[in-house]
């Protein structure tokens, strides 16, 4: 057996290709997708930067109550206006965003880790373990998330961590299902057979050959879960069960704005609403771009 063909000395003397015509597949033009990805990336980056930098650059007290200036409409002094206690809404929105992002990201991480562990265990072991674990998942999934979440927060004193636990512990089910299905399909691939035949232990097959194949899907599920978790946190806080009312969170602000709306002030409701919707859409848009990278055949619309 000789070595492969030697490397080329220079570029081949190829015939020039005349009238080169690009040909495109069907579907949405790639330009539109790139545009969506770019807008999503900019909005996500802006959100994260605002949450990180604004409180550091403007160390103003978002809790500063100024009853003389309550329910002021947007102005130069208060670009977003003030709430019913005269607190600056811009500052409070940014602080609320911090809480919501923290809850969203950490809860999504918790849910993903739990989901990978449970789904991976069921998928890799198969048989009776698999059936048992997945029935438990079905039972959990049959209870509405919010109800389950309320049950979890009710066991603790109000605060950020119970909310994270509540969201994380109710959202791992879909990840577990995805990971389990993916593991199942990977497990019957010949390359797993080849690894077993090559002496690989159960643990090595799971960690070196199955887990890396599952991670992109699980990672995508995690990103898609961040907006979910933000919504969930807002919902809990809106119901008065999540973040304590004095602490700014997008949910508590929306809740407080209900009374103001009746008083004819629209701005205390608008900003928290926008701050919930825009970042979640942006993150979902990024996740959609990621999904198309993993699996280019899926040209799905973004789903929340």
């Amino acid at each position: 057996m000789t070595a492969p063909a030697p490397a080329p000395a220079e570029t081949p003397a190829e015939a020039p290709v005349p009238a080169a015509a690009p040909r495109r597949g069907a579907g949405r033009p790639p330009g539109a997708r790139a545009w969506r990805t770019r807008v999503s990336a900019v909005l996500t980056a802006a959100t994260v930067l605002a949450a990180l930098l604004v409180p550091a650059v403007f160390p103003l007290d978002q809790q500063a109550v100024d009853l003389a200036a309550k329910l002021r409409p947007p102005s130069w002094e208060h670009p977003f206006g003030t709430d019913e206690l005269g607190r600056d809404l811009l500052l409070r929105c940014v602080h609320g965003l911090r809480v919501s992002l923290l809850v969203g990201v950490v809860a999504a991480l918790v849910a993903t880790v739990v989901g990978i562990a449970v789904g991976g265990l069921a998928g890799a072991l198969g048989g009776r373990t698999d059936r048992l674990v997945m029935r438990v998942v079905d039972v959990f999934a049959s209870v509405p998330h919010l109800l389950l979440g309320i049950f979890v927060v009710a066991m603790f004193r109000p605060g950020v961590w119970p909310v994270i636990a509540s969201v994380g512990l109710t959202h791992w089910l879909s990840t577990a299902r995805i990971v389990r299905a993916e593991t199942h399909s990977l497990r019957s691939r010949p390359y797993v057979d080849a690894a077993i035949s090559g002496g690989a232990s159960r643990w090595r097959v799971a960690v070196r050959h199955l887990l890396p194949g599952v991670l992109p899907q699980a990672g995508l599920a995690a990103v898609l879960m961040v907006p979910h978790a933000i919504w969930h946190e807002s919902a809990l806080s809106f119901l008065g069960l999540g973040i304590p009312a004095h602490q700014a969170s997008l949910g508590t602000m929306a809740e407080a704005a209900r009374g103001s709306l009746l008083a004819g002030a629209w701005w205390p409701a608008l900003w928290p609403g926008l701050f919930i919707v825009v970042p979640t859409l942006a993150i979902a848009g990024l996740a959609g771009a990621w999904r198309e990278r993993i699996n280019p055949r899926v040209r799905s619309e973004l789903t929340l």
């Binding site: 000789t2 063909a5 030697p6 080329p8 081949p12 190829e14």
Partner: peptide, 22 residues
């Protein structure tokens, strides 16, 4: 009997006849 060697990469074709090296 196999042909010695392997076909060239299509992104790095040798100059001249592509089969010459084999």
């Amino acid at each position: 009997t196999p042909i010695p060697g392997m076909p060239p990469e299509l992104d790095a074709l040798p100059a001249g006849c592509a089969f010459a090296p084999r």
